[in-house]
Design a binder for these strands. Structure first.
Lengths: 123, 123
DNA sequence: TCAACCGTATTATACATATAATACAGTCAC
DNA sequence: GTGACTGTATTATATGTATAATACGGTTGA
């Protein structure tokens, strides 16, 4: 069962996107694998304290991306292979890290300062 | 005059917040200083291809934060001192970098891998 | 079998964001 | 002073996000 224990709701970004990102991060981290069971829409919405429709929207988009499979009445499962995992890894790393690198550059930081900052904030 | 040449509209985050962030990044980078003139609402909206009301919303929030001053009929100017600049710097760096560090950790990267990634994507 | 789940769908409401079309009065350079 | 530009404000419309309240039929395990 994919865990949402480490998930904490932020504001500033849509909840359904945060749910999708959490699933993808779990996949890239290796804590979620092919065949793993997803929490049901109702259970997850209760756990996160959000509306079932919000979870459904996230799951629907995950299904459209081919990351999960759902059958009416039954549980949903992760459907992954090495190629998908690699694609998700690149999507998360390249996009997100590139965004922050661009922001730091625009603020006038040097590469050395940026690396030092990451080092400091890692703890 | 504060420049928006390097500004490029992204999707995924509200435009008025992107405008605010760009102004703050310019301040932290030192390319915008106390007393600098802001582009007018109309000029900037034309330049960015967005609605004047969207720019107005960004400017209004910048004014509420004490970063710019506006007088009806006249141009708007940056109002900064060392303390404000320092506050903005901390807001941008701590929040944004901490967010990405958390994301990278959740993806199972080590500190060494994260730093190596920043180093690689800096070019 | 059958009750308890499951996925899926619908309708309504509310708020945030963005656009469009105007309008009015203040400032400033000529 | 006058015209061009400024900040400010209003009303309407559209879309995306989130919630609330239901409803229907499929799946599963005891």
């Amino acid at each position: 069962m994919l865990s949402f224990e480490q998930f904490d709701l932020q504001d500033g970004s849509p909840i359904y996107l945060q749910i999708i990102r959490h699933v993808k991060q779990s996949i890239v981290a290796g804590s979620a694998e092919n065949g793993d069971e997803m929490p049901s829409r109702r259970v997850l919405s209760a756990l996160l304290g959000v509306n079932p429709n919000t979870v459904q929207k996230a799951y629907r988009m995950l299904e459209e991306e081919g990351i999960i499979e759902s059958r009416s009445g039954a549980k949903s499962y992760l459907v992954l292979d090495a190629e998908k995992v690699q694609r998700i890894r690149e999507e998360l790393l390249e996009n997100d890290v590139q965004a922050i690198v661009t922001a730091l550059k625009r603020m006038g930081l040097s590469k050395r300062e940026a690396i030092s900052l990451v080092d400091k904030l890692w703890e």
